[in-house]
């Protein structure tokens, strides 16, 4: 409805050199047609999400005990390929775990994500925007979730929220979805070679970083309801 400039809701913070998230911001309810929408910015990575639902469902996709969740990820240019399909699946499974789909049987919830710009940590940005849009749509959720990506470079340093360049130069890229209640890992997606110790260290770093994203969720919802 009313479109605020992005930096009106932007949340800024900085700490230690590479153990910090890039600046991030969000705008909710920016599209008028969908039931819920959000755009999430992480550094230069931007994703816009629209959610429709609970709405009518095609008979072929209907399930009698819960809502059918459909995730569509549109790349910046061209047709969606294997990488998009794989990300769609990660997002769908995370959302299925967080949403209380059993409350709306025989309906469909459609989540459409449009990549505006990809500068690394795309999957985590998609997850964050999906969560914001689901909150905007007023869907019933078990818990909130956020995505955090980290990269391990050739020297074994862990870089939080890497850019596309850092991702390319790194040995491994790990993305985790973290829930807001127990702060546990809901989903993990990894690429490259790493040791068990590095894996556990990455989870710990991402869990710590998730705190600031959850605080940001709370602040932005608070700002949204401050007028009523």
């Amino acid at each position: 409805m009313v479109c605020l400039p992005l930096d009106a809701g932007a949340h800024k913070f900085r700490h230690m050199a590479d153990r910090r998230l890039r600046e991030f911001g969000c705008e909710q309810n920016l599209l008028s047609r969908p039931d819920g929408s959000a755009s999430f910015v992480q550094g230069d990575t931007t994703v816009v999400v629209g959610i429709y639902g609970p709405a009518e469902v095609k008979v072929s996709k209907e399930s009698y005990d819960r809502a059918t969740l459909e995730v569509i990820l549109k790349p910046k240019v061209g047709l969606p390929g294997v990488a998009e399909r794989s990300r769609e699946q990660f997002i769908r499974e995370t959302c299925e775990a967080a949403l209380l789909t059993a409350l709306h049987p025989r309906t469909s919830i459609v989540l459409i994500l449009q990549v505006i710009h990809d500068d690394g940590s795309l999957l985590s940005c998609c997850l964050n925007s999906a969560c914001m849009a689901a909150m905007d749509a007023g869907l019933n959720m078990r818990c909130l979730f956020c995505g955090v990506t980290c990269a391990i470079d050739l020297d074994g340093n862990i870089i939080l929220d890497p850019t596309a360049k850092q991702e390319k130069e790194s040995r491994a890229v790990l993305t985790f979805a973290i829930d807001s209640v127990e702060r546990q890992v809901m989903m993990s997606s990894t690429k490259g070679a790493f040791t068990t110790a590095e894996f556990h260290q990455s989870i710990a770093i991402c869990q710590k970083a998730a705190e600031s994203i959850f605080q940001f969720y709370r602040d932005s919802v608070g700002r949204r309801y401050s007028k009523s």
Binding site: D35, G36, Y52, G53, P54, A55, H104, D136, A137, G138, R224, Y225, S228
Partner: peptide, 9 residues
């Protein structure tokens, strides 16, 4: 919980 949503249930 008083929330703002557009989809009717």
């Amino acid at each position: 919980v008083d929330s703002q949503q557009t989809r009717y249930v």
